[in-house]
Structure formats: structure tokens, C-alpha cells
Write a protein that binds this DNA or RNA. Sequence first.
DNA 1: TTAAGTGCAAATTATTTGCAGTAAG
DNA 2: CTTACTGCAAATAATTTGCACTTAA
Lengths: 149, 149
Amino acid sequence: MVGFGPAWKVAMTLGEQQRSTVWLARGGLRPTRQRLALAGLLVGDGMDRHVTAESLYAAVGTSGAQVSLATVYNTLRAFCEAGLLNEVVVDGARSYFDTRLDDHPHFYWEDSHQLSDAPAEDLVIAALPDAPEGMVVSRVDVVIRLKRA
Amino acid sequence: MVGFGPAWKVAMTLGEQQRSTVWLARGGLRPTRQRLALAGLLVGDGMDRHVTAESLYAAVGTSGAQVSLATVYNTLRAFCEAGLLNEVVVDGARSYFDTRLDDHPHFYWEDSHQLSDAPAEDLVIAALPDAPEGMVVSRVDVVIRLKRA
DNA sequence: TTAAGTGCAAATTATTTGCAGTAAG
DNA sequence: CTTACTGCAAATAATTTGCACTTAA
């Protein structure tokens, strides 16, 4: 899991602070030290991220902040329930969380267990099966599984 | 989990026996009592099935046969590795196995945690993102998540 | 002040494994 | 006979929970 910046960076920049605080507020969540640390790693730079509880826990350790693993789990779940993150199911063994909220396709790298966004504009679904009687489609998950060529 | 026939039926019909044995042979697996019982429930009637380890364990109990839960797990994994079943990931909490082997879309009933086939002919993917450099697409999973209307 | 949030350790859930016994080829 | 298969109980891995303590509003 890469992309969390250099190991020596403990504090967030003002922009990151700001963005994280606003982001938490949007979910109606209190900006605690732990949540700010996690939010900073997730949305601090405005890029989309895909994390597991373990990868985020590792990243927060590296960043110098102190957050327990249980809190990482609970916080990811809280972010999800607040509509700030989306859970993506690609691997029965662990949960992935995506900072991008719209319905879009994913690449799943089977050998490295990494998840990334696939370009949504390159996926065209010309026809979709109708939902059965009494049901509606809540979401369409498209996972493009990749293996080494 | 329905569709496994009446509770009082302990033995398989000849046709079921036959089908199950042939099916196991195709995977190069010995037709043991336990495997025949499970295979009978999975492919005995030629219909496609979607099971979890727990649902299949419950079904085999109901059928009168005696198979341990660990063996159900191990056997489902063995069937998968032999290419007789496909694993479908729709719910982080448990694994689903599908007797249908081709790449096809699924309905996932979020409220009842059931998985079923969606009509493949009604799904038309007109364009798909290219696999990144050095990678190839191993499979495209399409899961249509349903909720009550 | 007070309800929400946190950390730990223990509990849960789905699944796998070690190993002694059983059965298929 | 010999190696694969099975069953149980114990081990594991990811995740959740109970509860005393802390902190934001």
C-alpha cells in the first residue's frame, strides 16, 4: 500500500487539516485527533484512495500518529455509515474502502491484492438485466480482475 | 436457502448418482460418500446452484447424509480447485460457490443475503477499460445488488 | 457536563489445519 | 496395500464488542 507520503511527516499541512475537517463535518462526525489523522491519510491530498483496515493502520503508524487498530476498524465503519466512504467487496478475506463515492468500476490486482479505480468512461454497459419484481437495483459492482500477463 | 428437495429424501435417484459421479470424475476427484452427497445437492438435478458452506451443511443435514462442517468447507474448496465450482465474492462475510462455470452476472439480494444468476443475455458490455500494461483481464465480475423496492 | 469517541483485551465469525483413523483404487 | 479423504478439535485471521477512560461541544 503506497501513496501516503514520507515517513517523517507527522503533522498535516493546513490544507489537509482543512479538507479533513470539512470532510468529517459533512458526515456529521466529531473531528477527534484520531479521525483527523485517518481522514488526513484518506482525503488530505484530494486524491482517491483504496485502503484496508490493516493498510490504513500501517500508514497511520508510519505517519507518526497514534491510533489503535480497533479504532481504525471502528472509524472506517463509521466513515462508511456516514456516507464518506464506500465499501468494495473484491476479496472474501478482507474489506476494502474507497474514498470515491460514485458507482464506478474497479481493477483488482489478484497477485498483490490491490484495488484501484478503472476509468469509468471506458466502461459502457449497453444493457442491464431488469431487477426482479419488487426489487430495485441498489448498485452495480463491476470488478475487473487482473493477473500478470 | 431452499431448493434442496424434501427433508425425508435420504438416497439419491440413479440419475442423480450418475450425474454426481460423472461430475466428480471430471474434476479427477474420488467419489466418496461425502462428496457424492454434496455433489448430489449441487448438481444432482442439473440446475445451477449458489451455496455457502453453511447453507450446504444445513442442506446435507436435512437430506439425512452425515458430513462434517470442516469437510463441507474442504470439499467446496476442492471442487473449486478442480474447476467444478466458481467462487463468487459478493459479501465480505462469507464465500459463495456457484455451480455455473461461465463468466456471467449475478443478482445479490442484499436483505436476504442470497445470490442468484442474472440473465447473461440481458447484460451487454459495449466497452471495457483496457487492462493496464503487463496485465490481462482474468475475469469481469458483475454483481447487481438488489434491495426491496 | 455529557454524550460521543477511544483503547484495550476478550469475544465472535468464517474458515483452515494437524493428525489419527477410514476408505477408495 | 497405499495414498487420498474425513472428522474432530484446536488454530487462525479479520473484525467486533464490552467497558472504563477521555474528550469535543
